[in-house]
Design a protein around this nucleic acid. Structure first.
Length: 504
RNA sequence: GGCGCAGUAGCCAAGGGGCUAAGGCGGGAGUCUGCAAAACUCCUAUUCGGCGGUUCGAGUCCGCCCUGCGCCUCCA
């Protein structure tokens, strides 16, 4: 509430309570929705990694003007339509690798709590009923405007739209709307009707998390009036501010210079994106910009992100393959034997060891995921360098050195894989029957090519590589054999597989 | 009109009073290699939209201005 960064300690020791504004499910989910969902799932994992218990609640506003309108256009039941799109959203999130929240409360399931809250607000004199509608009287709440930095007088003066003349003040907002014919409605002390826009988040967050919970999230576009109104009605209701300790507002995803939004019709669906790109890449793109900054989405941005991501993910995939080839891709040994390490090994060990602390420091500073990713880039560079060092050295790889590499792999898996979800070995491997078949065929082809190379039959070896390149498959030779991957422009899910090759 | 957010290298993007302004992409020069690619090494911002001010010291704080965006009506 200070509009600044502060040192965080949860209100309830060891337990962090979070409410993230979810979606109004009336159309296909787009990446603008993915950003906050991803952000909160990552924050939750980070806090869990730090040892906190986390309760994450994300609502579905399934009673709403747009849903009703859409349902009417299609001759469908509004709640059924909302339920369908909510499922679509959850499925898209799942495929993006976003873990489910602890609760997904829906407005339609919490009418009782909402009505009760409005009743108390009316009783306390913060709300008034007119012809079956109930409004919140903003003049009764002196702090109104504290979140968005606006003053009531200015808001009143700046009113440029027609207001309902039954309101006492232009800025008063609806808590309850009287039923209109054909709309879903519920009984209430003011007659049949449905909740206004802001009240559901107050009622449901208080029901699931209690007053004074730690974080409340949502897009920048919700600061005013949605969150401002939530504060007003919630603090008026409980009489014990603060309703929320920290507000976390994510920047919007833009298309070119404009906001991506359903009403502008310039959205990029998550489903559509996931058909063409690995989830890990999309996550990388989204997390490589700090959550508060706006993010311009475009094919060029995606292509550039892909180039960086491939080096990072490649370091991880290659490290894993390196260890697997030596039968050492299992759990790391307790402590690498320092006596078995040369200078480069000791330096690499030090880097590996300091990575978690550096990562932690980045995330602890306002969830700075771009800096956290930069820490992983550092580790990637050093891992590649150390592997190269080992291969160029005449001597074989020592046990202590494998132990350090194992430790590096564990760091990658924990922070880049589990926590951020931007590293994925399979991302790459492709999925499904055709990918498997392709893998088999490629193995055979690389075997034949390897035989040609052994004979120094460069013409044949190059022909195989060049023709595959034309087909969108890149072949790379390494000291330990050849590997292949799909080119960026290939349509199938990317691949990065190891061919058999001859092993060193 | 009011309020809010942002403007950092060719591009993306951290940093929010004081070590040489992170990291990525792109570019340049090397190393390795049958070649190619990948990877690695080095280089690529005396300067942070503009002008003033505060301070021993300012991308960083304050004021004004310019530009872009968001909100004030449904939006993550």
């Amino acid at each position: 509430m200070t509009r600044r960064k502060e040192v965080f300690e949860p209100a309830e020791p060891g337990h962090v309570r979070i409410y993230a504004c979810g979606v109004t499910p009336y159309a296909e989910a787009h990446i603008g929705h993915a950003r906050p969902a991803l952000l909160w799932s990552v924050i939750r994992k980070y806090l869990q990694w730090r040892g906190f218990r986390v309760t994450l609640v994300q609502n579905f506003t399934d009673v709403d003007d747009k849903i009703i309108q859409r349902a009417r256009e299609r001759g469908e039941d509004p709640l059924a339509l909302a339920a369908r799109y909510a499922e679509q959203y959850l499925d898209a999130m799942r495929r993006l690798g976003v873990e489910e929240a602890d609760h997904y409360p829906r407005v339609s399931q919490h009418i009782r709590e909402i009505v009760e809250m409005i009743r108390v607000l009316e009783q306390k004199g913060f709300a008034y009923a007119v012809d079956g509608d109930v409004f919140f009287d903003v003049t009764r709440f002196p702090d109104y405007g504290k979140l968005s930095g606006q003053r009531l007088e200015e808001l009143m003066a700046g009113t440029r739209f027609e207001t309902d003349e039954r309101k006492r003040n232009p800025m008063d907002f609806a808590l309850w709307k009287a039923a209109k014919p054909g709309e879903p409605s519920w009984d209430s002390p003011w007659g049949p009707g449905r909740p206004g826009w802001h009240i559901e988040c107050s009622a449901m967050s208080l029901a699931y998390l209690g007053n004074g919970f730690d974080f409340h999230g949502g897009g920048m576009d919700l600061v005013f009036p949605h969150h401002e109104n939530e504060i007003a009605q919630s603090e008026a209701y409980t009489g014990q501010p603060p309703f929320v300790r920290f507000w976390v507002h994510n920047g919007l995803v833009k298309m070119g210079a404009e906001k991506m939004s359903k009403s502008l019709g310039n959205v990029v669906g998550i489903d559509e994106l996931l058909e063409r790109h690995p989830a890990a890449l999309i996550r990388f793109l989204l997390l490589n910009t700090h959550y508060r900054s706006p993010l311009e989405f475009s094919d060029q941005a995606l292509a550039e992100a892909r180039r960086g991501w491939q080096r990072l993910n490649g370091a991880f995939v290659e490290l894993k393959a390196f260890l697997r080839e030596r039968g050492a891709d299992g759990a790391p040994e307790a402590e690498p034997d320092r006596a078995g390490l040369d200078e480069a090994g000791l330096r690499f060990l030090a880097s590996v060891n300091e990575t978690p602390a550096r990562f932690d420091a980045s995330m602890a500073d306002d969830f700075n995921t771009p800096v956290a990713i930069a820490v992983l880039f550092d580790l990637a560079r050093e891992t590649n360098g150390f592997r190269q060092h080992l291969l160029r050295r005449a001597r074989g790889v020592q046990r202590a050195e494998l132990a350090v590499l194992q430790r590096a792999l564990a760091v990658f898996e924990r922070l880049g894989g589990w926590l951020l979800g931007i590293l994925d070995e399979r991302a790459a491997a492709g999925a499904g029957e055709s990918a498997q078949l392709l893998g088999g065929v490629m193995e055979l082809l690389l075997e034949v090519r390897q035989e040609a190379r052994a004979r120094k039959d460069w013409a044949t070896a190059d022909r195989i590589r060049d023709r595959l390149r034309e087909l969108g498959i890149i072949v790379e030779d390494t000291p330990t054999g050849s590997r292949w991957k799909l080119a960026e422009d290939a349509t199938a899910p990317g691949a990065a597989n190891r061919g058999s090759g001859t092993d060193a």
